[in-house]
Design a protein around this nucleic acid. Structure first.
Lengths: 331, 331
DNA sequence: CTGAAAGCGCTTACAG
DNA sequence: CTGAAAGCGCTTACAG
């Protein structure tokens, strides 16, 4: 059906080797032949078969990006950043969504390896994720958000401890003493580090930090907030460690008719998506997800280029940023 | 490095043909050989090379999903629906993001064809998108949201006219006479059909509909709303044809200190994403994006199975649903 | 039921 | 600078 390199060669009156050379532009080919090849390509509407190419010459033009929740705007922006860099380099990205399920992660890793991808960018579901198959296949892997305990891999993330400190010092400065924290699942270091950062600001004996865990989705944020509101009478403020749970917390607070910061103060996380700003009269610690995706991609490119060389530093830390509510903000 | 089918064959003492048969489970192989093969597979940690497989036997296990804005929650939910169905069938999905740029769309289509994908699901940037390369390659293609003018392809969408009518009859019943519409870009039928649906409810001589176009993002919604507010003195209500522009409209209205529905009434579109509900005390016409993705995927599966047969109906219409603001909603 | 062999569409030493 | 030929890792008629 579609034209093959052979058809092009025949039409141009050259060998397939020459066609291949012209197309990849690596070896020198005489101007005359080159022109004949290009003309034949045009006339036949020839398109290189990437599958055949990848079989012969692996380590090519496809990456896998595996995220834990594709419906979360944070990851979607990471994906956007990855895609932008990948495209520049002619690399196709396929996206997998684990829903934080290690088993689904396993399946996606298998698929990625079976597809002979040139590299993988991964948001772990927990530090215990098993990536041994990737390691032994020798496929370059960059981790986002948190490192894995089993392997020493480049990790691109924002400094979670500083993030927690930003929230903590903000709340401490406002004179709050009893802080409720709505944190992500226990096994994941990310949320614990943010929590630690906050705690470092509340060490004196007359302060108190109460932690409740949630599932990083809106519902989990609502439930955890409800629990804190019900069980911690003197609660001054809330710190929530991810975007969707912050939305959940705001909903719960609203539904009780409480006001921010009058009745309770709130610092959330990653509320910098444009479409959320109307619902966000709260302070927020923000990462730059698109940038995270870009940096991870460049790291992956380096890894590919260096043919497996480990970069000088495994941990690439970006700075979080405290955003106070705009004066415009309604409530 | 990684084990090949040959290694498995050698270890199991059989031919590669037998290994292939055992793995794909298509032909009968004796229990004894079958067991030897599986053991060898396990011992070597063998994983089938999908690239080689696809080269030999095209029409396989990979789809392309091409959307116009991957950071828009609507498309992200469509993607989720597609992924769920594809995964059930062992199909990998790669996602492309056109940003509504026909040129980027063209590049993604090229990539998809070069990767020999088994099918493509596409959100057109306009009805004039050129998919001739896909047609002539014979790759099954399903369109989401709007049909293409150049080709008769299965299209999965929600009934946009009914959607507009739902909004129109709601606003008419509330006694509004002057309606501002913030609609998506002119060339795209989707927004025009929604607009037509609304207009069909405002045909009498004492009513007026004023249309302003936007870019389907938050900023565009703000700008268009500002323009309407500034130039249409007697404006009673606003109808906005997509989710992000509705958010933009709400922000603009807020920033002017206007209230809904007291100062101005609003009907938006697709505000059913969980994380937005807090900012949505407005009525909204909602589609079910995940379902759209699922239906599109099943259509694509049918197309693949039917080896190119056109289905009985080209247009698959789902029903939109009018959602009035929850009583809980703050403002 | 099983194997030897051809072939999917490319790329790349190897000669010339 | 160019071509003939081998080979990437599978699958599948074709024999037996």
């Amino acid at each position: 059906m579609a034209a093959r390199i052979q058809d092009v060669a025949a039409r141009a009156g050259v060998s397939t080797a020459t066609v291949s050379r012209v197309l990849s532009g690596v070896d020198f080919v005489s101007v005359e032949l080159s022109e004949r090849v290009w003309r034949a390509v045009r006339e036949l509407g020839y398109r290189r078969n990437r599958v055949a190419r990848r079989l012969r010459r692996p380590g090519g033009e496809m990456w896998a990006l595996i995220v834990s929740d594709i419906e979360n705007r944070f990851f979607t922006s990471v994906a956007r950043g990855v895609e932008d860099v990948a495209n520049e380099s002619g690399i196709t990205v396929f996206i997998g969504n684990t829903d934080n399920d290690p088993e689904r992660l396993g399946r996606y890793l298998e698929t990625a390896l079976a597809e002979q991808v040139a590299g993988i960018i991964l948001t772990p579901t927990s530090p215990d994720d098993d990536v041994s198959s990737v390691i032994s296949a020798g496929t370059p892997l960059v981790t986002i958000d948190q490192p894995l305990s089993s392997a020493s891999l480049p990790t691109v993330t924002t400094d979670h401890h500083i993030g927690g400190q930003l929230a903590g010092s903000f709340l401490a400065a406002r004179g709050h003493r009893t802080i409720g924290v709505v944190a992500g699942p226990q096994p994941v270091a990310t949320w614990n580090t943010r929590l630690d950062g906050l705690m470092s600001c509340f060490q004196s004996s007359d302060t108190r930090v109460v932690v409740e865990r949630g599932d990083n989705k809106v519902a989990g944020g609502m439930a955890a907030t409800a629990h804190l509101l019900d069980n911690v009478p003197s609660l001054d403020a809330l710190f929530v460690t991810n975007n969707l749970m912050t939305i959940g917390a705001l909903r719960e607070i609203d539904s009780r008719g409480l006001t921010i910061p009058g009745d309770i103060d709130v610092v959330g996380y990653d509320l910098n998506s444009e479409e959320w700003t109307r619902s966000v009269p709260v302070t927020s610690v923000n990462q730059d997800p698109r940038r995270i995706g870009e940096v991870a991609s460049r790291t992956l490119l380096d890894l590919q280029a260096g043919t497996g060389r480990v970069p000088s530093s495994d941990l690439i830390l970006l700075e979080p940023h405290l955003q106070e509510p705009a004066a415009v903000g309604l409530h």
